[in-house]
Simulated scan of single mutants.
Amino acid sequence: MDRKATAVWKGNIQNGKGELTTESGALRNTPYTFNTRFGSELGTNPEELIGAAHAGCFTMALSGALMKKGFTADRLETSAVVTVQKEGEGFTITSSKLKLIAEVPDIDSKTFQTIAEEAKSGCPVSKLLKANITLDVEFRSSQRGASATT
């Protein structure tokens, strides 16, 4: 199973602007800029989307893990705070902090905590944050129509 998202950026980092689109159509030309990422301008940013993905993935993984053990949650609400810090000349994501509020009948706290920790470790987005990342580049120069692929 592959899922696709596309980012288009025009201009320099501080004054330029970009759009994010997902294959499913959930995001369609959704704007993002320097100020939506590092300021408080309305729009989205990559770290916010990683937080949403992590919270959503973990919550689904937990629901599945509970089901395998014979439990069904009345409600699982997870938030994720993704922290970005300056590192040298650039920035790095240093953490994703999940916070869970759970309502699950007929389960003791110790059993629930064990299942939740396993879901956190097994969630594909948790694994992604430690993943090998590859890059395939096709470069097209806007000068005199030259192009090259690397």
Rank of each mutant, 00 (worst) to 15 (best):
T72W: 02
A131R: 10
N45G: 01
T59R: 04
E41G: 11
T33R: 02
L129A: 12
R28K: 14
E41N: 04
G16H: 05
G39R: 06
K4P: 06
L98V: 04
V137T: 10
A102Q: 15
P124E: 01
A61Q: 04
K99F: 14
L66A: 15
A148S: 08
T22W: 06
S63W: 11
N29M: 02
L135T: 15
S24L: 09
A148M: 10
Y32A: 07
V81H: 11
K69A: 00
L128M: 03
C123I: 12
L66R: 13
T134I: 11
A116Q: 09
I50V: 06
E41L: 12
K130C: 10
L27P: 12
P105S: 08
R28Y: 13
F34I: 11
T36I: 08
L49D: 10
G43C: 05
A52M: 01
E77K: 11
K127E: 02
G43D: 11
S121K: 14
A7C: 06
F34V: 11
I93F: 03
R28A: 15
Q85L: 15
R140Q: 13
A55N: 00
T6D: 03
Q85W: 15
A7M: 03
I13P: 09
L49P: 12
I107E: 03
A116C: 03
S147I: 00
A26V: 10
M1S: 13
A65R: 05
E138K: 12
E23S: 10
R140F: 14
N45V: 00
T111L: 04
K86G: 01
T78F: 07
M1G: 12
A116Y: 01
R144D: 09
Q113P: 03
G70E: 05
I107S: 12
T78Y: 03
L76Y: 07
T6G: 02
T33V: 03
G16W: 08
I115G: 07
G25D: 06
G51C: 10
S141F: 02
S63C: 12
M60Y: 07
E89A: 10
G145K: 00
G56Q: 05
N132P: 04
V81F: 01
N12T: 02
T44P: 13
A102D: 07
A119K: 08
G56D: 01
G64A: 08
L129I: 08
T30W: 15
G16K: 07
S79R: 09
Q85K: 15
I107A: 14
